[in-house]
Amino acid sequence: TTIEWNGTKITVDNPQKAKELAKKIAKKLGLTVKVHGNTITIE
């Protein structure tokens, strides 16, 4: 699972952990999480 935001890509083996990490990042930055299959985008 890949997390993408602002040109940065982070690959996380565990999809559940990836989703939790994305939510934490999005919350800190005041952004939203969008899931597209194996890609999680923070916008």
Rank of each mutant, 00 (worst) to 15 (best):
A18D: 00
I40V: 06
K34P: 00
K28F: 11
I10M: 05
G37R: 03
V33P: 02
V12Q: 02
T2W: 04
K23P: 01
L21I: 12
T39S: 08
T1C: 15
A26S: 08
A22E: 01
G37T: 03
W5T: 09
W5E: 07
E4K: 05
V35F: 10
H36L: 10
I3L: 04
T11N: 07
K24T: 08
G37V: 03
L21E: 02
L29W: 07
K34Q: 10
W5I: 15
N6H: 15
K34N: 09
G7T: 08
H36T: 11
A18T: 02
W5C: 15
T39V: 14
I40A: 01
K9P: 04
K19Y: 15
I42V: 06
K28D: 12
Q16E: 11
A18G: 03
T39C: 09
G7E: 12
E20M: 11
L21A: 02
K23V: 12
V33I: 13
T32L: 09
N6V: 08
W5N: 08
V35N: 03
K23C: 15
V35A: 04
N38Q: 07
T1N: 08
G30P: 02
A26E: 07
N38E: 04
I42L: 15
K27M: 09
K23M: 13
K9D: 04
E43T: 13
E4M: 07
Q16I: 12
K24C: 15
N38I: 04
T1M: 14
L21Q: 02
I10P: 00
L31E: 03
E20Y: 08
L31I: 09
K23W: 07
G30A: 03
I3C: 13
T32V: 14
T2C: 14
I25N: 00
E43L: 13
T2I: 14
K34C: 13
T8N: 14
E43W: 08
V35W: 06
H36Q: 12
T1G: 08
V35H: 05
G37H: 05
L29R: 07
T8R: 10
I25V: 03
I3F: 02
T2E: 12
K19D: 05
E4V: 06
E43M: 14
I40G: 00
G7I: 05
K34T: 14
I42P: 00
A22I: 06
H36A: 12
W5F: 15
I25P: 00
G37M: 05
L31S: 05
T32H: 10
K28A: 13
K27G: 10
A22K: 01
G30K: 03
N38W: 02
V12M: 12
I3R: 04
T8P: 03
K34M: 07
K34E: 08
G37D: 06
I40T: 01
K19T: 08
T32W: 02
H36F: 05
G30S: 02
G30D: 04
I10G: 01
I42M: 07
A22R: 01
I25G: 00
H36G: 04
V33A: 05
P15I: 11
V12N: 01
T2D: 12
P15C: 09
L21M: 08
K9T: 15
T39D: 04
Q16W: 09
L29N: 08
K27R: 11
T2K: 11
I42K: 00
L29Q: 06
T39L: 09
T8A: 10
T8G: 14
L29P: 07
N14T: 12
K9V: 15
H36W: 03
N38V: 05
K24V: 09
K28R: 13
E20L: 12
G37N: 07
G30L: 01
G37F: 03
V33F: 03
K24L: 10
K28V: 11
